[in-house]
Design a protein around this nucleic acid. Sequence first.
DNA 1: CCTTTGATGTCAGTTTCCTTACACAGTAAG
DNA 2: CTTACTGTGTAAGGAAACTGACATCAAAGG
Lengths: 139, 139
Amino acid sequence: MEYQPPVGYVLKQAQSLLRLRMEEALAPVQLTVSQYSCLHLLRREPGASAAALARGTFVTRQSMNAMLQLLLDRGLVQRPDTADNGRALPATLTTAGADVLAAAQARVDEVESRMLSGLEQPDRNALLRTLTACVNALE
Amino acid sequence: MEYQPPVGYVLKQAQSLLRLRMEEALAPVQLTVSQYSCLHLLRREPGASAAALARGTFVTRQSMNAMLQLLLDRGLVQRPDTADNGRALPATLTTAGADVLAAAQARVDEVESRMLSGLEQPDRNALLRTLTACVNALE
DNA sequence: CCTTTGATGTCAGTTTCCTTACACAGTAAG
DNA sequence: CTTACTGTGTAAGGAAACTGACATCAAAGG
């Protein structure tokens, strides 16, 4: 009868470790994990507002606007100066942003691949499925 | 062909949501998630040093010492004033600390139970097993 | 014996993110 | 038309954690 850690603990452990490895992997391309998440989401949903990006990356819209300003200064993201509808300022990736994202993604993919290296395909599917069930149950 | 989110994203999502629900559940007993983790670990390993607790709860030893000071002030934790061997100050739960922990644990268990409510036992085992494999692969 | 290494506690400064609050734009309901 | 109501952007302040640095102690290692 050995000690069985709660699922929540292992979840935290896995997420912390993944974040650490991602930080290491993204350091060479000068991106934080949050910035990578932002660019990644922006590619999938071009024209998203800062508030929408914030919801998708688990930060507040204040943090997201600050982050967008940095990405804007580096020329990785575009944003109009004025809104033509409402107050939302739709953000899009620049060409440079897409390039940086591609380089970052390759590095992140490697980390994720490493994380899953001990699991066969059925187990990978099961992991994704069960995690999704957890998310749904907590919402 | 629908979009399949990366495992890392769902992992982050699950962990964020779990943390949020835990915060809500622990608010009535005046504990943060980190403080709960500290007490929890302290019960399993009485006499642990702040540095050891820090390693087990994913924070720095500076943060852990600050946290311990708060728990000390509330009388939930005991710590000798001087070290009899080395510099480590072994911390232990007080009776009050054990009581608060028990109340907190009941609430946290409810959250975890809710998180897993959509999964049968085999799936729960698979989740724990696959997550553990991820942790091992990233170390 | 002395030095080095590793671990612990602590101080100071910084960063990062959040909470609170407010102003503005569109939309729906009365 | 007026009135909420929701969504967005922005600013100010605070809370929590981190990084860097230093002093101390025990246990090897030369």
